[in-house]
Design a protein around this nucleic acid. Structure first.
Length: 643
RNA sequence: GGCUCCGUAGCUCAGCUGGAUAGAGCAACGCCCUUCUAAGGCGAAGGUCAAAGGUUCGAAUCCUUUCGGGGUCACCA
């Protein structure tokens, strides 16, 4: 495919070479070739050349040896294409060097275009990118950081690739879990001397943290109550419990006899579930949900109040993260949607109804299972809502061609089913919906588990990283004369840049390890390494004063290597956009900076006496700075003028 | 168990739509600041690309199997 070649080296020249080869191959070897046989790869460092043509595919076809084929093709291309300056054949590889003029033209193209590598805005179809999508009773954690940085970055990359992008999130603001924190707050919040329960105002707690606290409190009390009930059961105190429940308890208890530890734990879980269903707390929470659905004014007021706290808290966190959204969707608005679609599917015969009137879809033909779409009591499930929301979005944005869902890979199956159902329903856009599935973030100590308290809170983490950036930056001391505001911005830029780069440089699909010590590292393959290169170039440019691009200078190898990497940028953006992978951008920029640093350390730019060479080097430096700034912005990372 | 993703240097990761001697960073070792910011550069060291078969002129990359790990298989979201 063309994309591979774009990625490997410069796309313009290779297209030309390929065209020329297709046109003239017959005149050299008396046989025709197909496009697939023309394979390029990056020239290995130890050989001279800017691109390499693989000759093996032609061996059988022509019946000649690689050296002869390479020489003939090389000669041909050199005469046909003036920009090919030289070539050599090593083994089965034809290495070609492009002329200085070619590389200078590439440099100029990069230098003179402020939005080098970007396609015209909104020149490609509109896409919606969903990310974040939090639960309103849990503060955001490390996993959300990966999600948000990833979603935001993919959206920026798609914009750069010419798409119109609508950033959105769906806020999970309803359901029994929300009622749990509401109930816990009502029951367990202490009341102060003014007669108020805890609020963000009177406690100084961030709203999402306060609500999260009561969600945890609910769980604590809930478990305690369930445990007490089990205690009663174990002492044969079955008064007030239904016979069905008692029978089940006895059944599970009997089943435990003679079983191994693991099986017993499983049965204990079942007993716990049984007991939980008998708690007053759950009954009250369910009651609250019924009242909420009936729009009971008191419950509704409580709900809007507490959600208001959470949103204010999230807003603060998003601001710190540097992410934003064009449009918000709330589950409380969308949870009823989808039922119509299910009924429509039922009418069309795409779905079927069981005797208990629950609605299902049969996906066994696709190698999957039967999936529930409507409960027997007619209420929606997760899938129902997602169907409704998707259709709703296409109604809201008629120009939309697809939706990207940034959601963890534990939901791979869900999205597979969702897209399948949409396709079965006949929505043509179903095929352009895609699940940006990312792996879990592990900690060195193991998995993050909210129940065990091993979650890393997003706010805490960002604060710690910025604090650490402050400490380390102050040590190195390039900040004299900065105002406090400038300093704080710088610490923010470095800390967040480091964190974002750390989370984005890894292929999103892969599970990754979050090592706190490594995440604040400033050396090596890190965000600050890249930011530092940018700041150093800014310093250089300000010392150099004004200059103009001079095409008369000759280029050395180190310079050419940098230009080659710069010229790759447009293809890299496209590659990152088609693969929804910020990691491609991150790794590209790292390469660019390494190449630039090698060049930078090998010569002194400002001491250069030849004006043409000096201006060429400054042009190169400024171009590199521009691409750093541009590519980092695609990752949501800022770059500092000084650091 | 079914389905699915993953396994590359001591550690964290690139490379994976087949091509030359598998690359970085961290850690550890040795150099380079009287000249543009050393958050940098240079050097050396570190590998049975989980294992075994297969396809191919050629396999870390594609196919099969095995081993090891994750996820998922709710009238939860």
């Amino acid at each position: 495919m063309l994309l591979t070649q774009l990625r490997i080296t410069n796309f313009l020249m290779e297209t030309k070479i390929k065209a020329s080869l297709l046109a003239h191959f017959h005149s050299l070897f008396e046989v025709e070739i197909t496009e697939q046989l023309v394979q390029f790869q990056k020239t290995k460092k130890e050989f001279k050349g800017d691109t390499t043509l693989v000759l093996f595919p032609f061996l059988k076809l022509t019946g000649q040896n690689p050296a002869a084929i390479g020489a003939k093709i090389g000669e041909l291309l050199k005469t046909e294409l003036s920009l090919i300056a030289d070539f050599n054949v090593v083994g089965g590889f034809l290495n070609m060097s492009f002329s200085d003029d070619y590389w200078k033209a590439q440099l100029l193209a990069c230098y003179s275009d402020k939005s080098f590598g970007f396609l015209a805005p909104a020149s490609k179809p509109a896409i919606m990118v969903e990310y974040s999508s939090p639960n309103t009773n849990k503060p955001l954690h490390l996993g959300h950081l990966r999600n948000n940085f990833l979603g935001y970055s993919v959206a920026e990359i798609l914009k750069a690739a010419g798409h119109e992008v609508i950033k959105t999130q769906i806020i999970n603001d309803r359901g029994i879990h929300i009622c749990k924190s509401m109930l816990a707050w009502q029951k367990f919040s202490p009341i102060n001397e003014k007669g108020e329960r805890e609020t963000p105002q009177n406690t100084g707690l961030k709203g999402d943290k306060l609500v999260g606290k009561y969600y945890v409190e609910f769980d604590k009390q809930f478990n305690a109550e369930a445990k007490a009930i089990i205690g009663l059961w174990e002492n044969k105190a079955f008064d007030g419990f239904s016979t069905a429940t008692v029978e089940k308890f006895n059944e599970f208890t009997a089943a435990k006899i003679g079983k191994d530890e693991k099986a017993c734990a499983g049965l204990d879980d079942k007993i716990k579930e049984l007991a939980k269903n008998e708690t007053n707390l759950l009954r009250e929470a369910k009651d609250l949900l019924v009242r909420w659905e009936g729009r009971d004014p008191e419950v509704y007021l409580l709900w809007t109040t507490m959600n208001g706290w959470v949103y204010a808290g999230f807003e603060e966190t998003y601001k710190k993260m540097g992410v934003n959204f064009d449009r918000l969707y709330y589950e409380s608005d969308t949870f009823i949607l989808g039922k119509d679609i299910v009924n429509e599917g039922l009418a069309k015969g795409v779905f079927y109804q069981k005797e208990d009137s629950s609605v299902w879809v049969d996906l066994t033909d696709e190698g999957l299972d039967h999936k529930l779409l409507l409960r027997s009591d007619g209420t929606s499930v997760y899938m129902t809502q997602d169907l409704g929301t998707a259709v709703d979005r296409f109604n809201d944005y008629p120009q939309l061609t697809g939706i990207l869902y940034t959601v963890g890979n534990e939901q791979d199956y869900h999205f597979k089913v969702l897209f399948l159902i949409l396709a079965k329903m006949g929505y043509s856009w179903a095929k352009s919906c895609y699940h940006i599935s990312y792996g879990m973030v592990d900690l060195p100590s193991g998995k993050m588990k909210s129940r065990e308290g091993t979650v890393v809170d997003a706010d805490d983490l960002m604060d710690e990283i910025v604090a650490s950036a402050k400490e380390m930056t102050s040590e190195r001391g390039h900040i004299e004369g900065m105002s406090d505001e400038e300093k704080n911005n710088l610490f923010q830029t470095i800390g967040m840049g480091g964190l974002k780069y750390y989370l984005l440089k890894v292929d999103p699909k892969k599970r990754m390890l979050f090592d706190p010590a490594e995440s604040i590292e400033l050396n090596g393959h890190t965000g600050p390494f890249i930011q530092y290169a940018y700041a150093r170039i800014q310093s250089l440019l300000s010392k150099a004063g004004s200059f103009e691009f001079d095409a008369t200078a000759t280029m050395n190898d180190a310079e050419k290597e940098v230009v080659k990497q710069l010229a790759l940028y447009p293809a890299i953006i496209e590659d990152a956009a088609t693969n929804f992978s910020p990691a491609i951008i991150a790794n590209y920029t790292y390469e660019l900076v390494k190449l630039y640093n090698q060049f930078y350390q090998s010569i002194y730019i400002l001491q250069e006496e030849d004006a043409a060479i000096k201006s060429l080097r400054l042009t190169l430096s400024e171009s590199v700075a521009n691409v750093i700034s541009s590519s980092m912005s695609l990752l949501g990372i800022n770059v500092p003028k000084r650091m």
